[in-house]
């Protein structure tokens, strides 16, 4: 009996370490495969080089870094106000019954596969942009719109939780002072929930930067730093997914090195989100 208890405890301790182990393996394998490319190309040359043409051994990923950030910024412009608007409506203005129906419905967006978002973008948004704004249609704009919609569920559910965590007394105090509903939200609830909303935005940013399949289908994927919203663009994730199938040697290592850069960016974002959330609870 006692032995069995001890055995179970040891087993559970080992199982408890599974996610840390997987994380360690991911870091180990991606870095090990990617670092030789840094060594050969030069770290600085790799992240600031503006030309990517593996056939000529020109391996600079600045266009993709720029692409990822531009597309993500665009996604935030679309998804942030829309998502925050939904969260404020659900938490502050909708009746309990309405919120109980609307919230899971909006969260269902998270379940739609990214290839479906990409396909809708490809068949509807890209031709629309081509016809109404010009350019190839495959563009920063199309990517930003698709990603903006894809980050909605993260944005809504994390900032909804932040808004709900604001004690009702805050609102009641404001209303008792003669404020309107919106004034109470604007002056008290939103400032109080700010760290949580910020964390939502950072997490949404991480989702947008990490998204692959949807972006590939609508971005156009040319390796030039975009100068307009109608220019095609290639992100770090697309760079990996597009060329992984046939790359060999240094080219392949450079793709894993692209993964390392992506991993570092995402880690910085996640750590920032964690610090922001911890600041709230203190």
């Amino acid at each position: 009996m006692r032995n069995k208890e001890k055995l179970v405890e040891i087993l559970l301790t080992l199982i408890g370490l599974s996610s840390v182990t997987v994380l360690g393996l991911i870091i180990l394998f991606i870095f090990k495969e990617g670092l030789p490319a840094f060594a050969q190309v030069g770290l600085w040359q790799f992240v600031t080089g503006t030309r990517w043409s593996p056939g000529k051994n020109l391996l600079g990923i600045l266009p993709m870094i720029a692409g990822s950030f531009v597309v993500t910024a665009g996604a935030l412009v679309v998804g942030l106000p829309l998502g925050l608007g939904c969260a404020i409506y659900l938490s502050e203005f909708a009746t309990a019954k309405t919120a109980a129906i609307l919230k899971p419905t909006i969260e269902l967006l998270a379940g739609i596969p990214s290839v479906v978002f990409g396909f809708i973008g490809l068949t509807l948004m890209v031709p629309f942009i081509r016809n109404f704004f010009g350019g190839p249609g495959f563009s920063v704009l199309a990517s930003a719109l698709v990603l903006g919609i894809m980050i909605l569920p993260t944005m809504v559910s994390v900032s909804y939780d932040a808004l709900r965590a604001v004690p009702p007394v805050y609102r009641e105090g404001m209303l008792a002072l003669g404020s309107t509903d919106w004034q109470a939200v604007k002056m008290v609830v939103l400032p109080a929930a700010r760290p949580g909303i910020l964390a939502a935005a950072i997490l949404a940013m991480g989702r947008a930067i990490g998204e692959t399949m949807a972006v590939i289908m609508v971005a156009g994927n040319s390796t030039i730093i975009p100068t307009s919203f109608l220019d095609p663009v290639r992100t770090l994730t697309s760079n990996i997914a597009l060329e992984m199938g046939y790359a060999t040697g240094l080219h392949r290592q450079a793709l894993f090195a692209t993964g390392v850069v992506l991993f570092v960016i995402i880690s910085i974002l996640n750590l920032t989100a964690r610090v922001v959330v911890r600041g709230k609870t203190r």
Partner: peptide, 16 residues
Amino acid sequence: GTESLAGIPSIIFGLF
């Protein structure tokens, strides 16, 4: 470990 894993994009899981 768990939280970090949750933030990693699926393409990185694919590479790994």
